[in-house]
Design a binder for these strands. Structure first.
Lengths: 348, 348
DNA sequence: TTGTAGGCGTTATCAC
DNA sequence: GTGATAACGCCTACAA
């Protein structure tokens, strides 16, 4: 039990005094490398700490150790598609081990991300989780970001990326190409032949990989995908909405629209409906991610379920067990979930 | 420009030496209470800091000041309905002023929330934003939480609640009763007469208030709401799904179902569809919140739009400008948005 | 194994 | 206004 009184904070010195040992022993008993303190003292200290309601002062600890215990999650942007699944995955995993996560947004600009990492660096968190992809063309700004991150690592920090393979950090890699491949393959298998693609931004690596996957999947089935059937758009709901509008203008109707994400798909569906199309009768739509919040749209959306919760856990795991020998990459992939939005196509 | 090299950190001492002044002066020039240092020194220090790439060490600062500059956001649970709108509202606002937010989840348990606040207390963040409501019956556990928060305040921290009025802290109060009232009123105005309610957990204050609002809105229109038409459920998608199932069992059909949140509404819609009901022809559904991710469900959901972004900004504002004289309350309310899910009822 | 002592980077206190 | 100097709470050689 603790005294919730508003007085001054209990410090390690208090605990030490109460337990009748030195500061050092108290420190070791509470946080030190195990088994260096006599069990008797140990329990005496622990009891005293409990009795007094001692709580470590993270700032002091951070200062003494030169590193805090925070975990920082850097997402591209709050509006980004990646935000909610990735964030809730990581937060949930963190919650499971009683840790707190500091969230910051790179605001979809590498520029900003660099600045953010710089100030993060000053805070010396235990780890930075980099969520969301980088560019296809690894430009100089991207390199600056990596550089900043490497500097952070050289100071003893740990970086884990949740994105594509290829960064010089431990990474949890979701196989985006495969997600695209499997989805395209499954739909072609279902009988679809006329595809259109809402491709997201051409420079976003995640979107790009998924589109490449779409292409390969269709190729494998011998299904053509004309260039003009691929529409680029922002990586969010409004992007899908806009791209769908463009699609409608082109008068090049397809049977099914593959969107690079569920949110894009949902935006597109909204636009299609406005145009009077019946879904899925007039047009089938599929996405990728299987974000929980969207699981109940109608018609239920065919998608590729990505294991976000697991990804979060793995990321924390990678942080907890550093490796000596270079970046590790843990691969995960999703599974196609066929739902109502893509019924077997009827003869046209 | 900064040297991104991996060497040791630049400290205030370095800056002071470089500028040829004392630690104290350097400190004052960089962070001290303004206008106590000669302009010449001031600029000399600033220049040196810039040149060396000096960045403050927040841990050291926190330690010396006895308070860090972090803002902590305590949400009820990650799965909670409140998570995404409130979190993104606050994060966005924080982003706008270049601040980072530490997110923690109370995991939907007051018990846990108390523990979280206790460890937060140790971190001495500048402020704690308490998002999400408390219980209807202010129980002893709730009181313990408030107590812990008050203790934190007595240590100099600032608490801002985003919830209902009544807590002894500055609060941004969303008028939940009014949201319920306006929604019920609008639908009754549209011609609906047979209502059912998916009420959420009876002990959750937010849900409770909304239901009270429903009642009052209907009352005003002289529309009865039988007790057995009110079904309690969990405050999330699955709760809505389950409650919808229960509704179906009762064979007491209504024209429209008022859900206490969009997510509950969407879960219910999924269940209704499974049962073969056509929406909105066979049954109309409405929610509250207008969460962006759900804006495109079909049929488009009638709801009450709550100003989450504004709420986040106000919360940060309240933090930035403390008041001397007791808790302030800023009221905000939503606006009914009629969409396809509640067409004017046809004669039955 | 335990205790003593010094240091981590900043701010705050007081003389000057 | 400015500059020594002492905290702040914890960790960790180093010596005992």
């Amino acid at each position: 039990m603790k005294a919730a009184g508003g007085s001054r904070h209990v410090t390690l010195a208090d605990v030490a005094r109460e337990a009748g040992v030195s500061h050092a022993t108290a420190s070791r008993a509470v946080n030190g490398s195990v088994r260096k303190v006599r069990p008797e003292y140990r329990s005496r200290v622990l009891a005293a700490a409990e009795r007094l309601g001692y709580v470590v002062n993270p700032a002091a600890q951070a200062m003494a150790r030169g590193r805090s215990d925070q975990i920082a999650l850097l997402v591209n942007g709050i509006h980004d598609d990646y935000f909610s699944p990735v964030a809730s995955g990581v937060l949930r995993a963190a919650e499971a081990e009683d840790r707190m996560v500091t969230m910051v947004s790179g605001n979809n600009s590498v520029q900003q991300a660099i600045r953010v990492v710089a100030s993060l660096r000053a805070q010396r968190p235990r780890a930075i989780i980099l969520a969301g992809g980088r560019s296809v063309t690894v430009g100089s700004r991207d390199e600056r970001l990596v550089e900043e991150l490497l500097a952070y690592e050289s100071e003893g920090g740990r970086v884990v990326a949740i994105s594509e393979e290829g960064l010089p950090f431990d990474t949890v890699a979701l196989d985006n190409r495969r997600a695209g491949f499997d989805l395209a393959d499954a739909l072609a298998d279902l009988g679809y032949r006329e595809f259109a693609v809402l491709a997201g931004p051409p420079e976003a690596r995640t979107a790009h990989d998924r589109v490449v996957g779409f292409r390969e999947g269709l190729e494998r089935r011998g299904v053509p995908l004309a260039e003009d059937r691929v529409l680029h758009c922002a990586f969010d709901r409004d992007g899908g909405y806009a791209a769908a509008g463009e699609y409608l203008l082109r008068h090049s109707p397809a049977q099914v629209v593959l969107a690079i994400s569920d949110t894009v798909a949902v935006g597109a569906m909204a636009r299609f409906r406005e145009a009077g199309l019946r879904l899925p009768q007039d047009l089938a739509v599929a996405g990728i991610d299987d974000v929980p919040a969207l699981r109940d749209v109608a018609p239920a959306l065919t998608t590729v379920r990505l294991p976000w919760g697991e990804v979060g856990r793995i990321a924390l795991d990678l942080i907890a067990r550093p490796s000596e020998e270079g970046p590790r990459v843990v691969h995960r992939h999703g599974h196609v979930v066929l739902r109502r939005s893509t019924p077997p196509p009827t003869a046209d």
